[in-house]
């Protein structure tokens, strides 16, 4: 049910954006979802139709861009994917790193008129 609440939140933001920019029709909503954000893209997609049913966005498409979970090693500064390497630097095997990307969860853009 986590994703459903998030989709409602997305619709609230789009609603406000549409009103502020005097738009009449939204064709597509583009999200950026980090690999480490707690939302599962597949579930976002599957609950989207239910959430937009009976709203002005019933025919709006949803596109999700996945942002990889990248980190920089605190010891050797190697940049690596945290999920693939299970949080351990593939170069020097340190488990201390600083997250660069992957927690994003935002509306990147909308296609509208």
């Amino acid at each position: 049910m986590h994703e459903l609440g998030i989709v409602f939140e997305i619709i609230k933001i789009v609603d406000r954006f549409v009103a502020e920019n005097d738009l009449s029709q939204v064709e597509k909503i583009v999200l950026e979802v980090g690999q480490l954000s707690s939302a599962v893209p597949k579930f976002l997609e599957s609950c989207f139709p239910a959430a937009v049913n009976d709203t002005p966005y019933a025919h709006t498409k949803l596109e999700i861009i996945i942002i990889p979970a990248m980190a920089a090693c605190n010891s050797c500064h190697e940049q690596f994917n945290l999920v693939e390497h299970r949080r351990v630097c593939p170069n020097c095997h340190s488990d201390q790193s600083t997250l660069l990307t992957g927690r994003e969860f935002s509306i990147k853009e909308i296609v509208a008129c």
């Binding site: 935002s106 509306i107 990147k108 853009e109 909308i110």
Partner: peptide
Amino acid sequence: KVIEVKESI
């Protein structure tokens, strides 16, 4: 048209 929103959920 594509309109940038760039707003965190």
